[in-house]
Computed example of a mutant assay.
Amino acid sequence: MRAFADRAPRLIAIDLDGTLLGDDNRVSPGNLAAVRAAQAAGHLVVIATGRSLPDVRALWRGTGLVCPAIACNGALTCDAQGEVQATVPLDRSLALELLERTAGQGLYTELYMPETTYVTPDARAQLARERDELLPPGEREAGWEVAERHFAQVGLYPTGDMARALRESAAPPLKLLVFTFGAAQREALARTLGDRSDLGLTRSSPYNLELSHPDAQKGAALARLASAYGFGPERVVAIGDSLNDLSMMRFAGHAVAMGGAHPDVLAACADVTGPCGEDGVAQALNTLLALA
């Protein structure tokens, strides 16, 4: 990895989980310092995450960062003050159809709205049973760490009737996330839904499926933000690690994969930085932007 030949301002889109956020759900001092240095040097930093807007706001409060954000994998974008600028919602009838399907299969589901995320009740007990019954012993600890990150999200509201909650809300449905340790059930659902033209499907962990409008992808949202702020793709940098980052990697003029990223992400990127636990974001920013 080498520094850019010029010091022109760039838009830098940074994923959260596995990229900027560590396993402890925090931004390390090194990563935070590098992001602030990039902003001070005139670059526009954008958070790009599958998480909800309340989760993004919690990040801002905890770190003091001020920047625009792409949330819910591109279904929502907001400015640096947290004001929603655009949403790309799921069709409401399609969301209800999907909720009926996942409820009928007994799958843990999260329904993302702009200010609220509804979740299956008793999720911890349900997923603990799945872990013990479906995962091999050597995979259980790592799998449970992924589940715990879901439970740590901000603004979760358990409900026994998610479809009713959607029907009674005027807010648009932005994304559904299905999480299960049952590989056969998960992959069968992916095959069933994968060819639908009215639905976008991606993943941010080995155990989930994320369902949204086909245009609600990080790459499409990043393209809209870049245009709004006057950046061509050649002036855009994207840093991430998971399959839900691929669309923004393909849009960005310079894509950086985290060490240990999904193989498809590694193949799509020009550069590879260190893993999250070694401040890979800081390594990339300090090198590319000649900050250090």
Rank of each mutant, 00 (worst) to 15 (best):
A163V: 04
I239M: 09
C72W: 00
S204N: 15
N286R: 15
G277E: 14
P9G: 07
L65G: 03
C78W: 08
P136L: 05
R131K: 11
R235H: 14
P158R: 01
D198T: 03
L21Y: 09
E97V: 06
H43F: 03
Y157L: 10
L21A: 05
A221W: 02
A103H: 12
R124K: 14
R186C: 04
G259W: 07
Q39Y: 08
D15P: 02
M248V: 05
S28M: 01
P172G: 11
V84N: 02
G106T: 06
L174R: 12
G104Q: 04
G277V: 09
R186A: 11
S93E: 15
I14K: 10
A13R: 13
L96T: 11
D91H: 11
A41E: 09
G22T: 04
R92Q: 04
E210V: 07
C276Q: 15
E145L: 14
L53G: 02
D79H: 05
M249I: 07
A284C: 03
M249H: 10
G240E: 10
Y112L: 08
G50D: 00
R196T: 07
Q126P: 00
G74S: 13
P172M: 10
Q81T: 11
R167M: 09
V88F: 05
D79S: 00
S52N: 05
R196D: 11
D23Q: 13
T180N: 08
E278W: 05
A188D: 04
A255W: 04
L135W: 03
A284K: 14
G259T: 06
A255C: 05
G253N: 11
